[in-house]
Computed example of a mutant assay.
Amino acid sequence: MDIDTIVTENVEIHVDETPTVSSLDPDKSKAEFAWTLQATWQLVKTRLEMDQDFDQPVCKKKKLWETVAERVTAKIRTFESNDVTVKAYECDLKWRNMLATYRKNAERAKRLGVQSVHWEFFKAMHEVLGKSRDEIEAQRRTKLNGTKLGKSIASKRFTPILPTPSHTTAPFASRPPQDVLQLYMELQERKMTMWAQQKALEERKIEAINNLARAISSLSQSQNSVQLPKE
């Protein structure tokens, strides 16, 4: 009797401790996402294919990462048959970490050579991210050469825009060197004349002040002589 009771109690405890998953909670019913090697490769390929979109001066990075997440999710479900959903922020964060690793390996490749790098994603990323601006522009022009847009651009002739001469330099540009020298001498002569006139005016002011001082002095002396007491 005691043994049956103990077994029954153990069974009841075991059933109560078993977690149940509700079908109404979609996040818990789906498999938890983790970056596998295949998923990482899908992220690298998708992000590199959209590198020109991310490199535009004006673009919405959030929308682009949402597109990356949708494409990676679709490829993972096709190749791995997993009902997982990759979020945009997960792709962004994973790519930032991979970009930091790529830059470290790129520095190592510069110092020791490409053969010293054994990271499996380096070659694919370096073919796109390792190109300079000149190489990218040359590649873009090569692609445009065979298209209608490239032919139309090549056939157009552009007229260079020359700077407009200022109004102050126009009179001097039409004068020969001798006239310019003569004009300079005339200006210097005018300056000397103005300086002489100003000097004469200053001398007149000084003379007037001296005359006024003499007049005041003589007037003071005459007043003193008048006020002397008679003996």
Score class of each variant (00 low, 15 high):
L43R: 07
L43S: 04
T46D: 03
L48Q: 06
E49K: 14
M50P: 00
D51H: 11
D51K: 08
D55P: 01
D55L: 09
C59V: 11
C59G: 00
K62R: 11
K63Q: 04
K63T: 04
L64A: 03
A69E: 08
R71Q: 15
A74G: 08
K75Q: 05
T78H: 13
E80K: 08
D83I: 00
D83Y: 08
T85P: 01
K87F: 04
A88P: 01
Y89M: 10
E90R: 10
C91R: 07
D92Y: 13
K94T: 02
A100D: 13
K104Q: 10
E107Y: 01
R108I: 08
A109Y: 04
K110L: 10
R111M: 08
L112E: 14
V114W: 03
S116Y: 02
V117F: 13
H118V: 05
E120F: 10
F121K: 08
F122W: 13
F122H: 06
E127C: 03
L129V: 09
K131C: 09
K131L: 15
R133E: 15
I136N: 15
R141W: 14
R141S: 09
L144S: 10
N145C: 02
N145F: 09
G146P: 01
T147V: 02
K148H: 05
G150F: 11
K151T: 01
S152N: 12
A154Y: 05
K156W: 10
T159F: 09
P160G: 09
L162V: 12
P163W: 09
S166L: 15
